[in-house]
Amino acid sequence: MQSAKPIVLLAVFLLLPACVHVLTVGAQEAAPAPTAQAEGQVRWFDLNRLNIALVVAVFFILVLVFIRQAGKGASFFIRKIAGLDAIEEAIGRATEMGKPVLYVPGIDDVNNIQTIYSMVILGNVAKLVARYETPLIVPVCRAFVVPLAEETVKQGYLDSGHPEAYNPNNIRYLSDEQFAFTAGVDGIMLREKPAANLFLGSFFAESLVLAETGFSTGAIQIAGTANIHQLPFFVVACDYTLIGEEFFAATAYLSKEAKLVGTLKGSDWMKIFLIVALVVGAVLETFGVTAFTRWFTVQ
């Protein structure tokens, strides 16, 4: 019942007929009948967003080029990321102490890319935890994330060859309410005293409450989020923090899979492109030429 497979099947059965319906009839019903005047104004491309489309297209091309190169056997350098190296160290410490590992995948739903990516990292963490035969507790804030987390952790244990060690009762849905969830996680930290706390995902005002409670229990703490307003809180309260893009580099770094590392290389080249654009823009603005910077304005 708790597996993701029924969800996927349910989604397929629900979505496919509905998809056909929308593509044929639904769109016509939902859209108001265009008048002759409005028909003339209907556009198939928003020219105000041409700048975004071009930049995204350049980025996609760069990423695809590097994925292709990686597929042909090219190897790419990837710098050390202390926070990701520390994950295995933290799990090892929890194993030595005979205490569980706590993994909090943020408080957002699966429509947030950080939550999806947190599930990807959770898969890698589950493999490590299963190898060390250490309990892994995953409190979940969104009901939809429960089957994803269960299936991801179960697969991690299977991949490590320890399916019997998987305990479904350690994937715990607490509440959709932000501070009810925070209170629940704080309770787990104070009662079960995990030796390693991993906060990886989308966090908001609860970030410091969680991290400080974890600090008070003496756990080694690793956090990672792309919500920049919460980064200072994690930086001061956690032992390691994955800052922004480091969070999204986790699977490439941990798996060293060439195609995934290739996407990082694409991001690096895009950053170079943006840095050059920033410098050129700053120079042109200094000399009173504003057209270049205005082109980048998002409408």
Partner: peptide, 23 residues
């Protein structure tokens, strides 16, 4: 950096390179 990471992750998911979340 975070925005580029998010976009490239979205692309990886659309292309099926990241599939751990499917179990």
């Amino acid at each position: 950096g975070a925005a580029l990471g998010a976009i490239s992750t979205g692309l990886k998911i659309i292309l099926g390179l990241e599939r751990n979340y499917l179990g």
